[in-house]
Design a protein around this nucleic acid. Structure first.
Lengths: 192, 192
DNA sequence: GGCTGAAAGTTAGCCGCCTAACGAATTTTG
DNA sequence: CAAAATTCGTTAGGCGGCTAACTTTCAGCC
């Protein structure tokens, strides 16, 4: 689960000293980098714990949310979908929306189907394709789980004022954009 | 690798509408939450790519850094160690410092030893324990890899001014602290 | 209308994370 | 000093990432 394999972060003075030995080390950059990964991990952990209590993983939860978007027009907005697009249904579409490989999506759907949350159905037109559908049980799970999940998210961000949240999002956006540039995208999917 | 199974984040207006349906959903909290996980993933991806180019994973890299701390007093500061403590040497100490289980550490050391980066040695005093040591090859790897790694970190944070970095670290710190409170720690290791 | 190429989904195998349980060695306790 | 509890490292099995290769099916092109 953890991105950062380090429980305790170094103090800033330590980074300053290390920078004397490694001229490439930018202390404030390294500090921000470490805090970002560390906080992300911690926040992820809270969310993960809330999911684990319901016997579901983050990956599976993401798939359920994407499928929910397909069934509920209201839910689509939550996930940023345009009203007109029907939302992902096939494993390939789900994999693309989730940012994982099709092979990984196969595994996620396998376990979701085994647990009765989703159902595979062959496409009558294109016999290569499958349609993945949320079962009533899957939908029931989301309805029961989401309120608590939203509460947990609100609790995490409670120490920040509205202004601080805006600032955080703005700064994270800058970093994210830069990281996206540095990250050579496989398909270079520049948003059209 | 990814924490957040969602390639495109929802727009803020979508969160606002969703909040009308789910009273527990705090739009600004959810926005900050999603951005935090997403940016963390993206930044992690950059770092991971730089590691993958050297055929090493984040987990293994973390272990090498911890072992390096044990050998180089200078390096210890980089990782936040007190001057007096010798740094982790046994698998159990490494697992604790890294925040993973001993079982996971066994696997990491296995592959590191197979690749010749570290060496296991039996403890002459306590025959249950092993000492894990960085080999010259492992140290050579770090010396060759670290400058580029530091450069990559600096590049990610380049868009932020010094002030913005301080602000980011401050806000992340608040979130991290809150998340740590919400995360029931196994051993409740309140720093003494 | 039958090759060729592309796409969908799956499979196989690797890695790293987890929990649970184990044998060996040490420490604590009666 | 012997029994119990703890600690060490490891193993086994599950999950969820990945890449690479495969089968089936569709689409395009002579």
């Amino acid at each position: 689960m953890p991105h950062l394999l380090l429980k305790d972060l170094p103090r800033y003075e330590c980074l300053l000293e290390a920078a004397a030995e490694f001229p490439d080390l930018d202390p404030s950059a390294a500090e921000a980098f470490l805090h970002l990964l560390h906080t992300g991990d911690e926040v992820f952990g809270v969310s993960d714990r809330s999911l684990a209590g319901h016997n579901i993983s983050h990956g599976r939860f993401g798939v359920l949310m994407l499928l929910w978007r397909s069934r509920q027009p209201r839910a689509a907005k939550l996930l940023g979908a345009d009203e007109c697009v029907p939302g992902p249904r096939t494993p390939a579409e789900l994999a693309d929306a989730a940012g994982v490989t099709r092979a990984t999506m196969t595994g996620l759907i396998d376990t979701l189907e085994r647990d009765g949350y989703v159902k595979r159905e062959p496409d009558p037109v294109d016999r290569r394709q499958m349609s993945v559908l949320l079962t009533p049980r899957g939908e029931k799970f989301l309805m029961e789980f989401l309120p608590g999940h939203f509460k947990a998210i609100a609790a995490i961000m409670a120490p920040l004022t509205e202004n601080e949240r805006k600032t955080l999002v703005r700064l994270l956006g800058k970093v994210q954009q830069q990281a996206a540039i540095l990250n050579p995208r496989r398909e270079s999917a520049s948003v059209g």
